[in-house]
């Protein structure tokens, strides 16, 4: 899996969590749940994260992606549930560009 991408998602998650003053007792890792039960963010936090991630992906990889696309929203298991699934999802999205 793309390590740069994983680090970018972890850094962005930390940055948004800090902005929104979300306290996280454990370190933010690939297994950190982003949304839903025991998730780091509420819906407002999740949309903030998604908007920021799109901007950083555009800067870092020079590719414009819409993360909340039809494929993401129609999956039974949401790609936004934790950092690992989100990373896998974005990697596929970037490969498909």
């Amino acid at each position: 899996m793309n390590e740069n991408l994983q680090n970018l998602i972890i850094d962005t998650t930390k940055s948004i969590a800090s902005q929104l003053k979300k306290t996280q007792s454990k370190e933010i890792t690939l297994d950190t749940r982003l949304y839903g039960q025991d998730g780091l963010f509420d819906s407002l936090g999740l949309v903030t994260l998604i908007a920021e991630l799109e901007a950083r992906i555009s800067e870092e990889f020079d590719k414009d992606v819409v993360l909340a696309d039809e494929k993401a929203m129609s999956q039974v298991r949401s790609p936004f549930r934790d950092i690992k699934t989100l990373s896998e999802y974005i990697e596929k999205l970037l490969e498909g560009e």
Partner: peptide, 12 residues
Amino acid sequence: LCLREVSKLMMK
């Protein structure tokens, strides 16, 4: 579309 995309920048 314009509202959605521009809002992402305005949110920041």
